[in-house]
Design a protein around this nucleic acid. Structure first.
Lengths: 336, 336
DNA sequence: ATGGCTTGTGAAAGCGCTTCCATAACCGCC
DNA sequence: GGCGGTTATGGAAGCGCTTTCACAAGCCAT
């Protein structure tokens, strides 16, 4: 099928070792011979096969990173952290961005049985039992970032506590009716949901309970995708009702920015008419003066990459799970 | 060194083909044998070598993407576009993020002679002559996004025109003293600079000349890195002088957001006290009501990926260079 | 000339896997 | 109880490259 080093050798009337030498710019090739080989390479359109090359030299590892859309700043930040670590230590970083549950399964299937990578990092989710089993069978280490899983290397935050912190803060500001917007994504089992967002909801409920307030089902709404537009839409559904909340906790800053946008369009004053708090503390939160719960996004990625890399090299791990700190950041969107 | 399929076969007392069958979950392996093999795999910590596997089956290609920081929304958007296309067609996407000129050279060196990828996309820069020569020699196709290069597959915008559009718009709003902030990055040759930003400066100068205005060297400042903080710093250096400009054109939205932040901190009204226009039209520009010159970032990546993929498959290209449209987007930061 | 060098080159042995092919063991059937 | 037809398994030939090794020239100083 493809043109190989043998074809080139034959065309140039030399042995394959000579072609290889030309390719690797080693010494001891007569200029004239080199020219003949280069000519043959050019004429045949020969392209060396990276796989074959790496096979016959000290191994070059690669790790795969599976994440959702590259439009999600949180995930990009995590990727950035992973990148930082891996670019130092060496392995190739192969990015698999997943836009649907179906594609995720397909990719995971390929990876878990296809031996395409030497290590895997999943961001904000964990592979299902079947994939997991195969990955373990092949001794492909797996790290999850932004997810807690006892079986895998995991780096995570206490999302329940995060939800609690955000909600308690709003309660302390005197709010009694607090909306929660969570983003959902399609899961492989066909269900919709999202573990971190679910956990934050739990924290939200805890805080309400602690304050002796009921959880009103109406005040919890879902946004389908991760975007400002969805945040605005969700805010609308929350606020355009008889008895609207005075504060909203969005499970991501991006959604929260959408809420702020909606508020501005409607002429609502923040935080007086409506208080808003997000989650993540993305770069833009400062710009928008958005209160939020900060999670160390880049560090999440770094730690996951570090853990994975240690496992890949067979080094002993002091721990398989790392919890990262969460911090309430109060800005003007909740405290005028 | 590493444990191979032979070690496993020996440990399990079977042939390597049987191990391979177990690994690939093919039929015709007695359950008992399978167990023995799995046990051996687990005990030896055997991990199949992805390279070797892919070598002996229909080829699996990979393309490398070299870009700057993953914190730059423009570059992330381009990456997103690339990702969209390549995830459909198949090859692995290997991301090389570059934080210094030195690292870029080192990586490029490895890639151009190391045969690590089957195709390469460079975002916002082009490989230097030496790398380029080697890449050509090995028939590794190269596409550049956000850069124009006659020798390579390139997808670009007319940055001169973009600078012109932005500046003319400010002139039409009545501004006569217009600042320009450009970001610079270290180049392999040790110089600092950035081709797109340089071109936009040229457009800026064209527009001024057309309006019969002089280009004042004081009004052109540089930001060292791509960030809001740098934008604010540059704005400060421009505005805290005797005769400050009434409008600023920043060569990226991120810098422009920094300017807006600075203006807000100083109590300046936008656009009355200071008009600001950016470049790119990143997602957040809408949120910040920032006027800008829109470039189709995702599409830039998509086109580059498409061009590259066609070249990789040896398909004829109708064109090696694609110019993408630019569009002035007027929002409240320049027009009250 | 002649024994060492260095230099240019090809043959062949891997690298770790998949897969084709051959063999052996086993099934049920007339 | 012997025959075609499965089913389980090992041997060996690649996949496309790098690299060691051996060998043939060519070089210099003797």
């Amino acid at each position: 099928m493809a043109v190989t080093i043998y074809d080139v050798a034959k065309a140039a009337g030399v042995g394959i070792s000579t072609v290889s030498r030309v390719l690797n710019e080693s010494k001891n090739v007569r200029p004239e011979t080199r020219q003949r080989v280069l000519k043959a390479i050019a004429e045949l359109g020969y392209r060396p096969n990276p796989l074959a090359r790496n096979l016959s030299r000290p191994g070059f590892l690669s790790v795969g990173v599976m994440l959702g859309f590259l439009t999600n700043p949180f995930q990009v930040a995590v990727l950035h952290g992973i990148q930082q670590v891996l670019s130092e230590v060496g392995p190739n970083l192969i990015v698999y961005s997943i836009d649907s549950a179906e594609r995720r399964e397909r990719l995971l299937h390929g990876i878990s049985q296809g031996h395409r990578v030497d290590g895997l990092i999943c961001v904000s989710f964990a592979p299902g039992p079947r994939h997991r089993q195969r990955l373990r069978r092949y001794n492909i280490p797996v790290a999850v970032a932004d997810f807690r899983d006892p079986e895998l290397l995991s780096v995570y935050v206490d999302n329940v506590r995060g939800g609690y912190l955000a909600t308690r803060h709003l309660l302390e500001q005197g709010h009694r009716r607090i909306g929660y917007i969570q983003d959902v994504q399609e899961q492989p089992n066909g269900a919709f949901g999202n573990r971190p967002a679910q956990d934050r909801l739990e924290g939200y409920m805890q805080a309400l309970a602690e304050a002796g307030l009921p959880v009103e089902a109406d005040l919890v709404v879902q946004a389908n995708v991760f975007s400002r537009a969805e945040g605005a839409r969700a805010a609308a559904s929350l606020l355009e009702r008889p008895d609207p909340p005075t504060a909203i906790f969005a499970c991501s800053d991006m959604l929260a920015l959408g809420i702020l946008e909606y508020a501005r369009d409607r002429g609502l004053t923040v935080p007086d008419d409506l208080a808003v708090i997000g989650f993540d503390d993305i770069d833009l939160a400062t710009f928008a003066d958005l209160s939020t719960v900060r999670q160390p996004m880049v560090e999440l990625g770094r730690q996951a990459a570090q853990l994975l890399w240690q496992a890949m090299r067979g080094q002993p791990l002091e721990s398989r799970a790392v919890e990262m700190p969460l911090e309430l950041v109060v800005r003007r969107s909740t405290a005028g």
